[in-house]
């Protein structure tokens, strides 16, 4: 009996290892993209932008997200700097090929305006993150390939190369280090259209909050411009019951 159990366990282990080994680049990235996020999330996002002279600028945002099944809705309320205070931004991101819907509320115009979502490669609020970098990129917008496995900062990682299917996209490729144990990213390199290294994303802190992995501290370094952006998440609440009505024109205009 003991022998049988040992053999069964050995088979299971071998099967597990071979299943792991057989994972494609796409499957790894898919797992990373589809990490459980909870039904809804609330957080305060602080971005610190540092230029090559060492001068810093700070942007602060209160954000809410909620998963509605086939659509994920996000609403952001800008708190700082003062000239964008009370501006709000809402994004509805759909499963499949449907383009996102986006609206912006500018308090000076007192009107919610639909804007084109055709600007995923625009930098978000002057930071080193584009909208895509912040997590809105679709899985099949790139072709993913597992390059190798290696250890980074003591963590075993898959190293996956992602090449955009759109040849005119701002990056020629990205290389991502994804932890084997929880499929959370550790590091990501972004290469410009000429194939030169443009930016490096470092994940500095990952916390388990309410049972979900959350990146609470990250830094994007633009190595070509010697400019960096640090993002810190605070006051993170998951599954706190954000109401569906939060993601509406009414709330965009009313504010936090």
């Amino acid at each position: 009996m003991k022998n049988l159990t040992a053999i069964a366990m050995a088979i299971l282990m071998i099967a597990g290892i071979s299943a792991e080994a057989q994972m494609s680049g796409r499957q790894i990235v898919e797992k990373a993209y589809n990490l459980p996020q909870g039904k809804d999330k609330t957080s305060t996002l602080t971005m610190t932008l540092t230029n090559k002279s060492g001068q810093t600028r700070v942007r602060k945002i209160k954000q809410f997200t909620k998963d509605f099944g086939n659509v994920e809705k996000k609403i952001m309320f800008f708190i700082a700097p003062a000239d964008v205070k009370n501006t709000s931004f809402m994004n509805w991101s759909y499963d499949g090929d449907k383009a996102d819907d986006q609206w912006i509320y500018l308090p000076a115009l007192k009107r919610v305006k639909r804007i084109s979502s055709d600007s995923r490669s625009d930098y978000f609020m002057g930071s080193d993150f584009t909208y895509d970098d912040l997590g809105d990129r679709k899985l099949d917008a790139d072709t993913h390939k597992l390059l190798r496995e290696e250890t980074v900062e003591g963590k075993d990682c898959y190293v996956v190369q992602s090449i955009p299917k759109d040849e005119d996209y701002m990056y020629s490729k990205t290389i991502t280090w994804i932890r084997k144990d929880n499929f959370v990213g550790v590091k990501k390199e972004f290469y410009d259209e000429d194939g030169e290294l443009l930016k490096i994303l470092h994940i500095k802190k990952v916390e388990k909050i309410s049972g979900f992995w959350v990146i609470t501290h990250s830094e994007m370094d633009n190595v070509q411009k010697n400019h960096k952006t640090e993002i810190q998440l605070s006051n993170v609440k998951i599954n706190s019951g954000v109401p569906a009505s939060k993601f509406s024109e009414r709330m965009m205009m009313r504010g936090i």
């Binding site: 383009a99 819907d101 305006k113 639909r114 804007i115 084109s116 979502s117 055709d118």
Partner: peptide, 9 residues
């Protein structure tokens, strides 16, 4: 009204 069609609003 306003609507988005392939990146055009």
């Amino acid at each position: 009204f306003s609507t988005e069609i392939k990146g055009f609003v």
